[in-house]
Computed example of a mutant assay.
Amino acid sequence: LVEEAGSVDSDGGRPRTLLRVASGSGHMIGVDVGETRVRIELFDLTLTELARAERPLGQRRYDVDVVVGHIRDGVAEVTETAGVDPGRLLGVGIGVPGIVEHTPDRGAVVHGQTIGWDAVPLEELLRTGSRFPDTVRWFIDNGARTLGQAEMWFGGGRGARNAVVVLFGSGVGACLVTPEVEHGRAVEWGHLTVRVRGRRCRCGALGCLEAYAGAESLLERWREEGGRPPADTDEETALTAMLAAAYPADGSTADPAALAVLEETAEYLGAGLSDLINLFQPERILIGGWAGLQLGAGFLPAVRRHAAAYALRHPAEQVTIDLGRLGPDAVTVGAAILPLADFFARGGRRPETAPEGPAPAWRAVLEERAPR
């Protein structure tokens, strides 16, 4: 797992040998099941990207069979492109929207109410018909948690003991990291009620934050106010057009409807962040996800102002609110960290394969004598 990387002369005694991670000693795959595409990336042990594949989701974007097919094909493609033996993979990490339940019999089961996934046995579906050997492990978790994992290891969360990492895409979610939950816990922040009897959310409830702050609802509200998002495009392209209408680069008159909707969204997002500030008193809040990155630094001052106005004064004075630092690949990096963290937790040892046939007699005797 490590190799020599030169030496440093000592002031006295023997020179010191430098070590570094042997990059080719392990490989992981990270998968981001996003709103517009499935992104698959292969990394070595230093988390250097070796290959990537993207599969657009199109109109059937959350059809379970389509998503499973894209993941299977994508992971096979990146291993073939890089010439990596699938049997040597440390695992495949996948970030998905929704609540992930880890069951003893079916593996990871996804409850994605906003995307129409009702107890989807995603791990079982991926294992069935997979081209990978059974020794390759699948690690499936909420996309906000994988984003949070990446930012805490390599991005804007490094060094913080308490942080919240926000995923702002078609919907919104968050990952809470505390000393008690050091690897992060996904929280369904987007379904916090911000307005009684408010707009209907994708989950079916009324007044959720996601119904006001998610990119899908943002574009819908612009359309209701007379805006004209480009037809037959994905949400990322439509949001780019909305931002161009609200903040024209050529100095022309801004679209008042787009500007008003963006300003209202900043207030709702700030109010939603104030709840996280009051509840968890984090040191840092980082905003990631494709929509959060598109809105960018120009959007942040208004969000910070509204968060401070709605939050309790003392915790608001202790927190910083910034953009995440890892860009659009943060969810795939965080997903790849899932098998990497498991590998480290096992002391750098790969899972042992169960021997075929009956156990040797000496093992049976030891198991009988072991204290219970």
Rank of each mutant, 00 (worst) to 15 (best):
L295W: 07
E41F: 12
E235Y: 10
V92N: 08
E182T: 13
V319Q: 06
G148D: 05
G74M: 06
G207K: 03
P282M: 07
L286H: 12
R145G: 04
F299D: 08
L122P: 00
V110L: 03
I29Q: 02
E264L: 12
Q59A: 14
P230A: 02
T320K: 13
P256V: 09
E264V: 14
F343W: 10
V78L: 01
G184T: 07
R221K: 10
V8C: 07
P328I: 07
P328W: 01
T103P: 00
S170D: 15
C175I: 11
H314W: 15
G129M: 05
A330Q: 09
L219F: 04
P86A: 05
N162E: 15
V33F: 02
A361E: 04
T353L: 13
L45F: 09
I277E: 02
H306L: 12
E77G: 06
R200D: 09
P121L: 00
Q59G: 13
W117Y: 07
E54Q: 15
L45Q: 11
L57T: 14
V196G: 06
C208S: 05
D329P: 03
E49F: 04
G26F: 08
A330N: 06
G26W: 06
V333Y: 05
A53E: 14
L122Q: 00
V66R: 09
P315K: 04
R14H: 09
Q281C: 15
P104M: 06
A163F: 05
A82M: 04
R88K: 15
L89K: 01
A308N: 08
I40M: 06
G107F: 03
L366I: 11
P358F: 02
L218A: 13
V21M: 15
L340S: 02
L262D: 01
E225N: 09
Q59K: 13
N162I: 13
V164H: 07
G83T: 04
G190V: 04
H70R: 10
H102T: 09
G87M: 00
D250H: 09
Y268P: 04
G87V: 01
S170C: 15
A5V: 01
L125N: 07
R137W: 00
P15C: 04
L206E: 13
P256K: 10
I285R: 03
R158W: 03
E124K: 11
E151V: 05
Y62V: 05
L126W: 02
L279M: 15
D44R: 09
R185Y: 12
S130A: 10
T135Y: 01
V66W: 07
